[in-house]
Lab assay of single mutants.
Amino acid sequence: MQIFVKTLTGKTITLEVEPSDTIENVKAKIQDKEGIPPDQQRLIFNGKQLEDGRTLSDYNIQKDSTLHLVLR
């Protein structure tokens, strides 16, 4: 499925993911596309910070959902 990740600069990254993917996996995909190390990434969905060990389906993230990427 496709999800979107919006950065603070207003750029939107499109990712191909599975609901069973962990947040860690998603961060690795963002690193592949953008070169941002996962330990600098914080992903936010519906105002909640997403934890590495959880999956997209844990957070009820579905296709065409938009996550927000904050760098630390």
Rank of each mutant, 00 (worst) to 15 (best):
N25M: 07
N60D: 14
I23N: 03
N46V: 13
T12I: 10
S65G: 04
Q40F: 11
E34Y: 03
L67A: 01
T9K: 10
Q31R: 08
E51Q: 06
K6W: 05
I23D: 01
I61F: 03
P37I: 15
N60H: 10
L71M: 08
E34Q: 07
Q49N: 03
I44S: 12
D64P: 02
T66L: 04
T14M: 13
D64G: 09
I23P: 05
V5W: 01
K63M: 09
T7V: 12
Q41K: 02
K48H: 13
G53N: 08
S57W: 05
T12E: 04
S65L: 03
T55Q: 10
K11V: 10
Q41E: 02
I44E: 08
Y59V: 04
G35W: 07
E34R: 07
E24L: 10
G47F: 11
F4V: 13
S57A: 09
Y59M: 06
D32K: 03
G47P: 01
I61Y: 01
P38K: 15
E51M: 05
T55K: 12
E24A: 02
T9V: 15
D64R: 03
Q2A: 10
E18T: 04
Q49G: 10
N25Y: 11
Q41R: 02
V70N: 08
T22D: 05
T9M: 15
M1H: 14
Q49I: 14
T9H: 07
R54L: 14
D52W: 11
I3V: 11
I30M: 05
I61D: 00
V26S: 02
I44Q: 12
Q40I: 09
L67F: 03
D64K: 02
E51P: 05
V26T: 06
D58S: 02
T12N: 04
P37V: 14
Q31L: 05
V70E: 07
D39E: 13
T22Q: 07
D52H: 10
E51K: 03
N60F: 15
E18S: 15
Q40D: 08
L69I: 06
N25Q: 03
Q2R: 13
K6F: 10
L71K: 15
K63E: 13
F4N: 14
K33E: 15
N46G: 07
R54S: 08
N46I: 06
S20N: 14
K33S: 07
F4Q: 07
P37S: 14
P19N: 13
F4M: 03
Q49P: 12
K63G: 04
L50H: 00
T12L: 06
L43A: 01
P19Q: 14
N46K: 04
G47L: 15
H68Q: 11
T9E: 10
D58W: 09
R54E: 08
D21A: 13
E18I: 12
D32T: 14
L50P: 01
E18G: 03
A28Y: 08
V17E: 02
T14Q: 08
G47W: 09
P38H: 15
E16A: 08
T7R: 11
S20M: 11
T55S: 12
E16G: 05
K27T: 02
L71Q: 05
I30T: 03
F45N: 05
I3G: 00
Q31M: 06
T55M: 09
G53R: 09
I61W: 01
Q31N: 14
N60E: 14
F45H: 10
I3F: 01
K48L: 15
N60M: 13
H68K: 02
R72K: 07
L50F: 03
G35S: 06
I3W: 00
T12D: 14
D39A: 13
E24H: 02
P37R: 14
Q31P: 05
I36T: 15
